[in-house]
């Protein structure tokens, strides 16, 4: 049944017709309002999130900058440390303070026994236990390191 037939039907005129129109408009307004509020909420959430993201990004930039600065300071200190640890500098200090230092006598040195399963650290004193390949087949390494 279309609108035209509905309007011309006398049995549907009067109070009954008014009652059917009101919920339809209210429903539409409600639905529109709901949709609008959802859109608004989504929009607001997006803006809020963006703002939060921005804030965090700024914070990140600030912290990154701080880290970079600290790393720069560490690098500078590392260079200074290396300069202080150089033999040239140590020798100068020994002479300056007239320190009667001498190398240790090998007889004074005792080595701890390595426990089973303990891995040897690379030795500063010569051959270590590195595994390696060779051009002519398997390689042999000399035992050494911390004994």
């Amino acid at each position: 049944m279309n609108q035209f037939t509905k309007k011309t039907n006398p049995s549907e005129d009067g109070a009954g017709a008014g009652r059917t129109e009101t919920p339809w408009v209210a429903g539409l307004i409600f639905k529109m309002a709901l949709i609008m509020s959802i859109i608004f909420a989504a929009f607001y959430a997006r803006v809020h999130l963006n703002d939060k993201t921005e804030q965090l990004a700024r914070e990140k930039t600030r912290i990154t900058e701080q880290i970079r600065e600290k790393q720069t300071e560490i690098q500078t200190l590392n260079i200074q440390l290396a300069q202080l640890k150089s033999w040239e500098n140590i020798n100068a200090k020994i002479r300056q303070h007239n320190l009667a230092l001498h190398a240790v006598n090998p007889n004074q040195v005792r080595y701890m026994k390595r426990f089973e399963g303990q891995v040897a650290a690379p030795s500063l004193y010569g051959s270590d236990t590195r595994v390696a390949d060779t051009s002519a087949g398997a390689k042999q390494t000399s035992a050494g390191g911390i004994r």
Binding site: R130, A132, D133, T134, S135, A136, G137, A138, K139, Q140, T141
Partner: peptide
Amino acid sequence: VMPVIRET
């Protein structure tokens, strides 16, 4: 690690 290259 750079390998030790030693003939067997």
